[in-house]
Design a protein around this nucleic acid. Structure first.
Lengths: 333, 333
DNA sequence: ATCAGGAATGTAACCGGTTACATTATAAAG
DNA sequence: CTTTATAATGTAACCGGTTACATTCCTGAT
């Protein structure tokens, strides 16, 4: 039923090898034969079977992508960028949802291995030793997205988190704030550490001494409690949050308590998730351009797969501050 | 380097056929041999090569999924549901982004064909004849998500749009509204038609005569203009929008003009996108449960692939009204 | 005219599984 | 103790491509 290379061979009078060469646009074959065979291919509606191809070449032109949560647009954009770049290069993407679970991630890696993917783009928040080992032992090329805390030299693409945090803080300082708080949750990720460090460095660079009381590292409820109990003159006049999701959460809680944003306290987030841009929120934030990320991750992975590069690469993109309403900056309108 | 079935065969002393049977848990093989061979498989770390498997079985255990925009959480949730259901059944998903482009969609279908996917879940907004033909001519099982306007009997999973619209309108009527408007954009999709019809039927069922002036079918700007120019006694006191994205857009524009929601006009959307749930928005809307959709789509597709069903199926899920703030209903809090 | 060497094409093994069919072992029946 | 049916295992062809190596065909040099 399905048309194979041998059908094309028979009908065209050329051998399967030649047909194969035509398919792969080899320069071992004349322009004339290319035309003739090409015509037969069209006539028969022949489409090369990628599975068969993959078996003999040991390549699948497929890359795996493991993300914690597909429905989170943050990852959605990442996937979109990667998918587009992949498509342009004849690759397709198999998506797996790890649900933030490392055991599941390892299973996923093995699934991808059995499918002979050429490489994996990992967006695992908590990249640990067991994941690293699984990837390396199975000889699977991979690229990580996001900042990576690891003793191993690893390929990754990440935004410059330090720089992003600094831009946010610098902007707040320029708006006249001196008591700037940092609010995260109580889960101490490496990412959190980096952004907090950026916060500190920016303050120091502007000769503002760091007040430990302004670094809120408990869970959201406790942080809000602490904030509410502070004397007004002690309260921060601006808050930089670990990420946009948290910023939204904090804003919700603060507004419930009657705190006005940005009048009483300015807020700046990180990530620039879609929701941040919605008018009634207008969250000022640091854009880390997920889509571009996805694209770069794929490109790096492709270079690795094709053996264009031997060393590991750490690609750090520059973030951009998106000024909206919650920081209290005057809009140009 | 990679361990193959023949390595397992050699080391275990059994033939490749028996090893293959063990892998596939065939009951043609003794429990004892299963154990023995199983041990060798473990020892060698053998993982069956899915590509080779796919070549001989002509199955890939892969399904393709074509969506218009991966980064839109609406589709993200759909993908998530499908991915999870697929994973449980040993399937993986290749994602393709059609960017709302039908030509791209057809190319994507051919790519998926060359990859021998077992079936496709399509979430094409504008499912036309050419797409239908491509799928059928290539003998690819497929399931559509969303309502389908087609002369052909097609497998699809959709929410009951009529019912959803009716629930929304009924709720507004119960809140005391009599002048209820319908606002869409000027792109007349089948989906739009269905929801508009639900709106009409609900009004009629409640003996409210339909006022053409309250159906806004121009583009958003024009509709807003028209609304603003209406005499206050003519203005609708509540608006049902085609979907949540539009609801947000309309709300933004209306609030810019000083119209308060829900005091001046109540708003109800459709889809229950994530943003709708955010506190400062609190959009009352109709939930069509995308994730469940993805799951059901996969399950239906699987039945078709496995030949469990001959006829076509139209699965219609029941939507649920999510009452938040924009409809003006008193909150229970 | 003869030959070397490169270009174009062909032959057939191979990738790593599956499975129809063949064979052997095992047990029940005559 | 055959015969026969059945269960367990083995042999080898096959899925549809790729590609190393072999072959044929030209062209230009001697």
């Amino acid at each position: 039923m399905t048309v194979t290379i041998r059908d094309v061979s028979k009908k065209s009078g050329y051998s399967v090898a030649t047909v194969s060469r035509v398919i792969n646009d080899s320069d071992l074959v004349t322009e004339e034969t290319k035309k003739k065979v090409g015509q037969v291919i069209k006539d028969l509606g022949f489409v090369p079977n990628n599975t068969a191809r993959g078996l003999s070449t040991r390549k699948s032109n497929t890359i795996g992508m493991i993300v914690p949560n597909i429905s989170n647009p943050f990852f959605g954009e990442l996937i979109k960028g990667a998918e587009e770049a992949a498509g342009k290069n004849g690759f397709n993407i198999i998506i797996l949802n790890s649900s933030y679970n490392n055991e599941k991630t390892i299973k996923d890696i093995m699934i991808l291995k059995s499918r002979n993917v050429d490489g994996i783009i990992m967006s695992s928040v908590d990249f640990d030793e067991s994941i690293y080992n699984t990837l390396v032992e199975n000889g699977i090329p991979f690229v990580l997205t996001g900042p990576v805390l690891s003793n191993h030299k690893i390929n990754y693409v990440s935004v410059d988190n330090l720089e992003g945090a600094k831009k946010a803080i610098k902007h707040l300082i320029e708006l006249g704030h001196e008591r700037i708080g940092y609010m995260s949750g109580d889960y101490a990720s490496y990412l959190n550490k980096l952004r907090l460090q950026g916060y500190r460095e920016a303050l120091e660079a502007n000769n503002i001494k760091i007040d430990k009381e302004l670094v809120f590292k408990e869970n959201i409820e406790k942080n809000i409690d602490k904030f509410m109990k502070m004397k007004s003159e002690d309260k921060p006049t601006a808050i930089f949050t670990f990420n946009d999701y948290m910023a939204l959460d904090y804003m919700e809680k603060l507004e419930e308590k009657g705190i006005k944003i940005p009048e009483d306290v300015a807020v700046v987030g990180f990530d620039n998730i879609k929701m941040a841009s919605y008018y009634s929120i207008g969250l000022t934030t640091v854009d880390n351009r997920q889509e571009e990320f996805g694209e770069k991750s794929f490109e790096l992975l492709q270079d690795i797969i094709k053996g264009k590069t031997e060393e590991t690469h750490q690609i750090i993109t520059k973030p951009k501050l998106i000024i909206r309403k919650t920081c209290g900056a005057k809009s140009k309108k």
